[in-house]
Every structure is written in C-alpha cells, then in structure tokens.
Design a protein around this nucleic acid. Structure first.
Lengths: 251, 251
DNA sequence: CTTGACCCTGACGTCGCGTCAGGGGCGAGT
DNA sequence: ACTCGCCCCTGACGCGACGTCAGGGTCAAG
C-alpha cells in the first residue's frame, strides 16, 4: 500500500505519514523504484499502535520509545492502553457529572465555589504515567510478573492453555445439546470458569468486561464463526451464559 | 488574586495565563500599581469555561469567539459542553470495547483486519461541530428555540417556574410526612413530574441523568441543605424517589 | 536594608503537523 | 507518442499553544 491508501484507511493525512517517517517513528518497510513509500501489514499494525498512544496524549517521541522497547510485546501495549482508556472514561464521567451538577445548581439558584469547579481539572498528564505505573505495578509486582509470563509462555504452556479452552468450549457445547438453559447455574458455572481462565492465562477480566465479550460473541461474525464451528447455536449460548454470569457476579 | 494563585487553583501554569492575556482570551479585570495582574471571580468563571472548551479540543481562538458571542449565555455553554462530553464518553467506550475485542481476539488466535482496527479512529474533530450543530439543531429548531427561551425568560416566567418547583417540593415533603415510602408509586410520580419540569424549563434531562442528580442531592451538602431546609430527611427522600423513578423509566 | 519568593515583559525554542512550491511517475484516453 | 489528471516525492516555511530562559522590578519578613 502507498501513502494515500494508508492515510485514507487510518484517517490521517499523507503529511502525517511523511512526518512519522522522517522522525523515524514509522518508516514504511519498502520503497518502489520511483521512491514511493510501500507500507506492509506490519507497518499498519504499528501505525495503529501509534495512533492509539497518540490519542491517549503521549508525545510522539515517547510513543516511539514505548513501541521500540524490546521487552514490550503487543499484549503489554494492549493492557496499558486498556488501563489508560478506562482512566479516561472515569475522568470524562466525572466531568459530565460536574457539568450536570452545575446545570442543576444554576436552575436551583445555587452557586458553586471556584475551588469546587476547578477540582475537575486535576492531574491527567500522560507523562505522570511512568512514575505512576512503577509505583502501582511495583507494589503488586507478583501479579505483574505472573502476567508478564504471558510473553514467556512455552510451547507446553500454550498446549495446556489451548486444551483448557477447548475443554470449556466442549462443556458449553455439551450443556447446549443437553438442553440446559443458558442462564442456568450449570451454564453460568462454565462461564465463570471461562472468565477465570482468561484471568489466569491472559489478562485481567472483571465480570463487566466479560459481559462485554459475551455481547461481542454474537455481534462479531469472527467470534460467532469460532463458536458456530463447534456447534450451531453455541455462540448465542455462550454469549447468554457469560452475560448471565456477569450479572450473577454483580457486574 | 494574582497569577500564581489563580494558576495553582486552576491547575495551569503562569505562562498559560500570560498567554491567554496576550491573545486577549482572558485578560484580568485589573492591575495593581506595579503592574501585577489581578483576577476577579468573574475572571475565574471565564477561565473555567476556557479550560473546559480547551479540554474538549477547541482551538483557543474558537473558544474566544464562543465565549464572546453575545447571544451565548452560560446555559448555552453548559448544554454544549454536556453534549460534547457525552459524545466523548461514547467514543471512549467504543475504543475501550475495541481494545477488549483485540485482547480477546489475540487470546483466541483470531486476527482482525486492518479496516476493523482503524474504524475506531473515525471523525471526531471539534471543528466539525460548527456544521454539525447547525444541521442538527437547524432541523429541530422548534426545540432549539423553545430552549433558547430560557435566556429570555421574563420575570413572570421565573415566578411561575419557582412556583412549580416549590409545588413539587411541597408535595415531596407532604409524602414524606405522610409516611409514604420513597420508592412508592406516589413518590415516583412526583419525581417524574420533577424531571418533566426540568425538561420543560431548563435542560434536557433523561432518566439516567435524573438519577445522577438524585445521587447528588445527598452527596453534596449544598443541595442537601436546600432540601433539608424544607423538611428534615427530605434530601434523602427526594434522592431515593428520583432514583427509583429513573429505574422505573428504564434508565 | 537585604533576602527570597513572586511578578513583569520580551524573545526564542518546541512539537505536531498544515500548507505551499517545484518537480517526477503513471495509467487512460486521443 | 502525447497529454491530461491524479498521485507521489522532497524541501521549507508557518502556526498554535505554550515552555523556557534572560533581565529586571516588587513586596513582606526578618
């Protein structure tokens, strides 16, 4: 792909890609004889990461060091991005609440103090993330290290994990063919095991997030196909069970 | 207040305030004999608005024109900010979902297409707001005009609105002293009327937002005081009724 | 009457591009 | 073979929103 196509796909300008090339943040993996930039799928992957970090407010130079860090596999980035996005979500919710509070205050004739109104603008530098992350994750580094093993999974580990996953899926399929309702205790128990498996082997997955995944299983054909391949109706079944379990777990 | 204090309060640097002064976005209303900038409470108000719009991604020049528009009273800004913040909330939720989707895809060995991954980065320019707002509000301008009357409320209007508010509050108080439960139909009906009143007279208030206000009535002493002045226990009572009604309305 | 914390006004630097300017490459039609 | 229109290239300057000195005045405390 040449610049124009990539730019259109990613929703950025050609100039931006030129810029990223010149500062060494994202250099296309090839050039044509005429000097045209040629972007590979791997380049697109990297661009995607760049844009995510940029959206999160990181300066481009820091994005580069993050992406070029040798110990940072894609999963590390995904987890970090997930955490930062959730932080942002929280911050935005606080701001929404603040604005609603002020609207209501105005209509009731109450006026707020300056301190109150400015406290929304607390700290939210992405730069502070460095220190923050090392404090937060430094404390729970047992957890961090257990998670970082993901990158170091051996072939045996992967075999075991795949087997675990297949086992849960088989039990879902069995429950389905047995005619057990998807919101029954038995189905929800399997769903909970599914969640724990993700927790152990991949990433932190609270019930709420698990419910989101459940919805995705029927909304996205890719995941639907994965389950329908095992048994027809399984995608919907797993989806329902997972969401029911999330509700049961108090999400 | 002089620059340093304002900067500390608002969480910006002194240089930023200097900058806003020089470009005419926020000039302090006074100077001391020695030339020190003196900020009034009104200046702080304006700074607050500036920072909100800035946070939302508006270029400073546009912030200036927005704030200096003669037909734009504070309520207009609040409504606009509320809308923009909700948009942002939605966008962030979409991005969170996208990252979760990718984490799950990776752990299941599914890979996503580039198109899929980039579609998150759709349009989100604050610049497009201009055109957008005139289209959206142009269509429903009956609604817009009915809302803009807020700024043009006459003294009689205000008297009527205050009376309506007092009426609802009195009926809440009566229900409370009658020993009617706050989550009963009668209390919820009054709550719904409260919501409709806000809708008619002030701003668009869907059930979900109304529930948020309900929580605030007990969390914020300012609002608590307003209700407790009428009858002891009324803040908690209204809060519960409003939230119960929101659930009933399907929030 | 000095010290240290705060204030002032230039003025230049930085980051992430936008925006020309000047020139070459390439497939379609004539 | 030529040209038209669209895409690509490389400088190079501009801009918005400040950061960061430099050089100097102010003000309350000791």
């Amino acid at each position: 792909m040449n610049v124009g196509e990539v730019a259109a796909l990613a929703g950025v300008t050609v100039r931006t890609l030129h810029h990223y090339d010149r500062i060494g943040l994202l250099s296309p993996s090839g050039r044509t004889a005429a000097g045209y930039r040629q972007y590979s799928p791997a380049d697109l992957d990297r661009l995607h990461q760049v844009l995510l970090y940029r959206e999160l407010g990181f300066p481009l130079e820091e994005v580069g060091t993050l992406l070029d860090a040798p110990d940072a596999d894609p999963e590390v980035h995904l987890r970090r991005q997930h955490r930062l996005l959730r932080d942002r979500l929280e911050r935005t919710q606080v701001m929404v609440a603040a604005v609603e509070k002020e609207m209501e205050a105005r209509s009731m004739g109450i006026s707020l103090t300056p301190e109150e109104r400015f406290e929304v603008f607390g700290e939210h530098d992405p730069a502070e993330y460095d220190a923050e992350v090392e404090e937060r994750w430094g404390e729970t580094d047992a957890y961090a290290r257990s998670k970082q093993k993901t990158a170091a999974y051996s072939k045996d580990d992967w075999v075991r994990i795949k087997a675990e996953g297949a086992d849960v899926e088989a039990r879902f399929a069995a429950a389905l063919t047995d005619g057990i309702p998807a919101d029954s205790d038995r189905a929800m128990d399997i769903a909970e095991e599914h969640r724990q498996q993700i927790n152990r082997n991949f990433y932190d997955c609270p019930p709420e997030m698990h419910a989101g995944l459940g919805r995705m299983y029927v909304e996205d054909e890719r995941f639907t196909a994965h389950y329908e391949e095992i048994a027809p109706g399984l995608a919907q079944y797993v989806s329902t069970a997972v969401q029911a379990n999330a509700t049961r777990q108090g999400a």
